[in-house]
Amino acid sequence: MKKIGIYPGCCFQGADIHNYDITTKFLENMGVEGILLERAACCGGGVIDETNKKIVYGLNARNIALAEKEGVDLYTPCNTCYMIIAKTKLALDSDPELKEKVNEILAEEGLEYKGTAKIYHTLNLIRDFVGLDEYKKRIKRQISGIKVAPYYGCHVLAPNEVAVDDPENPTILREVLEPLGVEIIEGYKDEDTCCGYHARFTEPEQKERLAIKPLDGAKEAGADIVATPCPLCHKAMDGYDEPILQVTQLINVACGATPEEAGINLNKTEVKLSL
């Protein structure tokens, strides 16, 4: 069985603890053994930069080194963790001096950043690690009669250097959702507008103003639900009129889980799936 390192970010913490179960169940459904990187730490979340941005390099060099020590690649379902860790990898791989300095400090914990581990997010994990053909084979049942609006979120498409797909015309989310039997609604208003999650505790009203925009756009276009790969977008956008789910929740249901097992009952805005 193929193995991958599960990076535990804040999307597995506190009230979002069920995201860990969703993630491990998803990997199981994909035939991948997940190894929890227990000593991994917060990626910085775009907040620790406000203390000292060098810490962000250190934290993520260490996170990747923990995966490398286990001999596995690193997987996170979170768009933001993915972007920040992938950006750190780019910085370390293109700056030998930075890499050397970080490694001197990492050595005291018995760790080394080599640059061998790849960074995966749910979308490129399905396409490149599992393979789309194998993915389709693992879908056991169809979720039919539902119109789904794909919502990427920002950090899997920007910056361009770490985008998991063509950032101008991405198709990967459609390719992941179609085999589930759902009807896809694309090209809706504000489909590329940010969910505002990262303004939650800097300017909460800004988050409120943004989160509703893609939801309203999807609703106007006739979508029953919005589907995002990102647990942070999900958190920011759940609780309004139009429901939102994580793609991995839908995949788990299509692989045989009950909606409750897929954590769908925990949504603030109720979702009805016909199976």
Partner: peptide, 23 residues
């Protein structure tokens, strides 16, 4: 302000435990 309190608390709890205290 709300954001600077967040930034200080975020780093402090990551330093303490490795993760942020979302509670």
């Amino acid at each position: 302000n709300i954001a600077t309190r967040r930034a200080k608390f975020w780093f402090a709890t990551v330093f303490e435990t490795g993760q942020i205290d979302k509670l």
